[in-house]
Amino acid sequence: MNRNFWITALVAFINSLSLTILIPIIYLYGKQFGLSDFQTSLLFSIYSISQFFATPVIGKLSDRFGRKPLLIISLAGTVIANAIAGTATTATWLFFARFLDGITGGNASVAQAIISDVTTPENRAKAFGINGAAFGLGFVLGPVTSLLAQQFSLGAAFLVSGAIAFLALLITIFFLPETLQTKAAKANNLFDLGLGNLIRGLAIPKIGILLIINFFIGTTFTIFTYAFQPYFIQVLGQNSQSLTLVFILFGALGTIMQTWGVSILSRKFNIVSILFLALFIRSLSFIIMPIWHNIIYFVVVSIVYSLFNSLVQPMINTLISLNAKSQEQGTAMGLNASYLSISNGVGPVIAGMLINQSYPQTYSYPLYLAGTLTFLVLCFAVLTRKNYTPSEIRV
């Protein structure tokens, strides 16, 4: 891996750290402004929905004008948005900040396009694994940093997040060169900038089917992530401190798997086989997690889950990258990030409809559903594998 790759991985780590600082506090911060539960949920959805529409545009523009300027704009948007949120005096400003962060939030897809630019096809799975590990490491340190920032105020967590994003911005400006070698043609209209690609992207050979698969993967995953916390606290009788430790465990094991695990498995199995294995373990884990309401049992299942779950996105990203033309890497990664963003809005709604606080047994229902749907996604991926498997990989 060359210097530009490691700089990009560092930016990915700092970006994930900035993001995960906010995860534990958005709901409580919204409550400080007198928002209802439904209004607070919109703070999550407005970010995901605006990101859904923005990321393909940012990806397309990165193919036209280069990776560096679009990464700079995206990171600057996060810095400004978090500064506004951290100093907001009304809910209107808070909603505007979440919208701004979402509409400029294409830095992950641009970083993935940079990795595609600077790595060879045979090293791409390993590169995306390392990038995923860098992102996962942020999920380990982000909640810890958030707890420290909250000692001052919830708004301070937004300001710390913005300061960390500003560090990533400086690294990008001064140390990351432009990596795009061949620029795409100039867009003729708004839809050429990527909005039309949200629909047309589904028809791109080999890419469209991967976007569909990853949308359903993301939806089933967010069903789990929404239901996981209330199940852990309400059913297993745990507290916020032990929940934080589980998040740290998830992040640490994911980081290990995405660095050494991907490298080891790639020597023995092809990318598609690793994806199938990871989806199977994820599906099985979701289904057996709520069978026995015991914390030790839950942690053991979670360890197995977190190891293999961390393989899913690096394999999907690698397949998309290998199937996309060099001048369309940003577009493809932007589309992928876009459909993942909208899945982040769909999954929690589905899970929330299944949970009834008056009936504790309902906290298990989304976990069973997530496992069943993940298995169906795996079956679909297996049946359609010839439609997205690169020619150099045997199926």
Rank of each mutant, 00 (worst) to 15 (best):
I248A: 06
L195A: 08
Q112E: 03
I115P: 04
G30T: 12
F5L: 12
W93V: 12
G218S: 07
Q150C: 07
G196Y: 12
F52R: 09
S161L: 07
I21C: 06
I103E: 08
L190F: 15
F33M: 11
I7K: 03
V140I: 13
A83W: 13
I233E: 14
G129L: 04
S62T: 13
A351M: 02
Q327I: 13
V377S: 04
P366R: 03
S283I: 01
R98Q: 13
V11L: 02
G129S: 05
W6E: 04
S240N: 14
A149N: 09
V377C: 02
T89S: 15
V118D: 04
F269E: 01
V160E: 05
F215S: 01
L211I: 09
L354K: 01
S161V: 09
F221N: 02
R282H: 05
K31V: 14
D117K: 09
K126Q: 10
F298R: 03
F375Q: 07
T20S: 12
T259P: 08
I350H: 02
L42T: 06
F128S: 06
V346L: 05
T372M: 06
T220I: 00
T384W: 07
S146T: 05
F280D: 00
M289T: 09
Q361K: 09
A203H: 11
F99C: 07
K268D: 01
A81D: 09
G251F: 12
D37L: 08
N323A: 04
I207F: 06
G66I: 13
V235E: 07
L253D: 07
T40P: 01
L176T: 12
T182Y: 09
R267Q: 10
I393S: 00
H293C: 01
Q234G: 03
M257H: 06
F175A: 11
L383T: 12
I264D: 00
A278K: 07
T179A: 06
Y47A: 06
G86N: 11
G132P: 08
L43Q: 10
G330M: 04
F166L: 14
Y231G: 05
I288N: 02
R64E: 14
L61Y: 13
A381W: 04
L147Y: 11
T219G: 00
F152S: 11
G330R: 08
V377M: 05
S326D: 15
S41Q: 09
I103D: 05
F128C: 08
S16V: 03
I103S: 09
A185Q: 13
M289V: 04
I233F: 06
S364R: 06
F375E: 05
P348N: 03
T89K: 15
W6N: 07
S310F: 09
I130Q: 02
A156E: 12
L154E: 08
P314L: 04
D101N: 14
F232S: 05
L367C: 01
V110Y: 10
W6V: 03
L35V: 12
P24Y: 12
F96Y: 14
L70V: 10
S302G: 11
F175M: 10
R394E: 13
G347C: 00
L137M: 11
N197G: 14
T259F: 10
T222R: 00
S48W: 02
L210F: 01
I342F: 05
